[in-house]
Design a protein around this nucleic acid. Sequence first.
DNA 1: TCATAAAAAGACACCGGTGTCAATTTCTAA
DNA 2: TTAGAAATTGACACCGGTGTCTTTTTATGA
Lengths: 340, 340
Amino acid sequence: MKKITINDVAKYAGVSKKTISRVLNSEPNVSQDTKTKVHHAIKVLGYQPNPQARALASNQSLLIGLLYASQSNSFVSKIQVGALKRCKNDGYNLIIYPEDHESDLLLENLEKGLINTNLDGLILTPPFSDMKPLLSFLETRQIPFVRVGGDQSLNQHPSVYSNDKEASYEMCRYLISLGHQRIAFIMGHPDHAASKQRLLGYQQALDEASIKPIDDYIQQGFFTFESGEHCARKLLTLSRRPTAIFASNDYMATGIVKVAAQMNLFIPNDLTVTGFDNAPASRYIWPSLTTIKQPITEMAFEAARILIRIIRQKPIENPNIIFKDELIVRESSAPAPKLD
Amino acid sequence: MKKITINDVAKYAGVSKKTISRVLNSEPNVSQDTKTKVHHAIKVLGYQPNPQARALASNQSLLIGLLYASQSNSFVSKIQVGALKRCKNDGYNLIIYPEDHESDLLLENLEKGLINTNLDGLILTPPFSDMKPLLSFLETRQIPFVRVGGDQSLNQHPSVYSNDKEASYEMCRYLISLGHQRIAFIMGHPDHAASKQRLLGYQQALDEASIKPIDDYIQQGFFTFESGEHCARKLLTLSRRPTAIFASNDYMATGIVKVAAQMNLFIPNDLTVTGFDNAPASRYIWPSLTTIKQPITEMAFEAARILIRIIRQKPIENPNIIFKDELIVRESSAPAPKLD
DNA sequence: TCATAAAAAGACACCGGTGTCAATTTCTAA
DNA sequence: TTAGAAATTGACACCGGTGTCTTTTTATGA
């Protein structure tokens, strides 16, 4: 299965390669007749011009740089900094593909983008890390890739994880150690594999502490602020109100904080609220959130390292690396209030 | 001033180009003697291998893709989505350069990165948009670039702005319309040109409303949460306490919200707080922040459009486009309380 | 109908490196 | 001293396109 080149197209269409080039670049002086022939040949053979050859011949890279301050602390920025640090070291550059993960055209877009860039490899972040159709697409295309985060059961592919379940477990242990018994949990978006892991950690901790699970204490959220608000309203109007709510991410936790304030519940004295992810907002809101910090930059760095080894066909010692999350205690958690 | 190629180096060193290639890729079977000669020649001539030629010959792009969910609403993500939307359309790809803007090695890093990528152009975001040494570096290197945001007095270079001064002015008009007379202002980081513009808008609005400026009401912040806290403490302990505080960005505004809560001041009834930037946190905190939204994605899109025209040497109609910011009123602002 | 111009298509070198294989030089051992 | 092996170096094709110039075909007008 060799790559189709301009020569193949020329041969198929029965014209010179320069004519193909003319059609490709919509230069003048090509008859409608030949244009049609060429387009047909391109379609039949599935020809995609090689961007590197083009760059060399035309003295244009077709690359535009985007310079921005690395100090930003958003997820996107962190993962880029980490991955790039390693790539630079090995002479690689990072091309970005922000894509709508809910779009039906995803695979199609990607196909266009990846192929006409001649990528050496790809780093996947959630929720792309868990999209099986995408993974098999990359496999058949033989594009090397590494997953960051996501579903650990997909570990037949090289992946870098942080241990969501364990971190969630630890958070709950911490809450229990503060004396909480009525601990509610807000689940994350079902598309993200992490959601399930975080739930499992919660359940295990409660189970080990012999706290009977209560169905009403587990609510389905979607990682958004609004879903956090919604679940919080449900939880805080229960007759047997929880004394602590652990949300699967910080955005939802901030939603709880808002609802609590509206209900005149004082955090952390009346209610403990904790989140996950150490989002920027978790530091900025008041009270600041107790949360879990994932080593995002480090994970991306490691992912890039593995990917480069795969590209170079060097052996990789351990294709599934698990990083440890960290519990960050801030103002939103306190010992459980005495219940009547 | 032609580009130095491998042939030049070969000629200078008096060996074949294949030998240069051997040294470059540290292949075996090169005598120490020739190695030295070649390294010397490379140094003298300032030779940098052409990545596109290399890619074509070795069938490797040296490019790694990073796939991530475009839904993220951080600044970094927004600007990337906007720029890329345009670039894709014209067959360009986006390579990212997250750099530490406070590093002394910035220019050096950039030189390495940009040259060995053969970039066609560069998009600058704040605070890089305002770094004169960087701008002149790019000019002498003849790398086309477009500035996004930043100092409008640097408009001899193609730039895309949003009107910080006007937006700031509008925010203050809004506060005045709510009956506020004691309006304090927290300045942004002095490295960012926007900081000055935002201050000017504040001053103009107060001036037009014949509100006497008070020195103590203007504090120097640094765009960080902590600096917001610090300034808020100063402002809220003044004997003649302001009834509204306008912070130059949302992070500082969230700092104010925290301090206010600690001082048992109820927002917005006792104190109006407003920010700037429409950062994610501005929606998530309680009360949510009245702020200014900049059309970041649109600006980046336009910047890419201009850049591509420059690269293609097409005329650009207007090399300095100004976008309009938008006032977003949320929960943190209310009519001024009656003063005794 | 034919000279001439305009349009269309092709030939071929070239972009700047790498891969293959042959040629040359150096080293080793008889 | 010299054959033979090993190390070093070079010649040249090639990667897959584009640019320049030439040739061929088609259209135009006298």
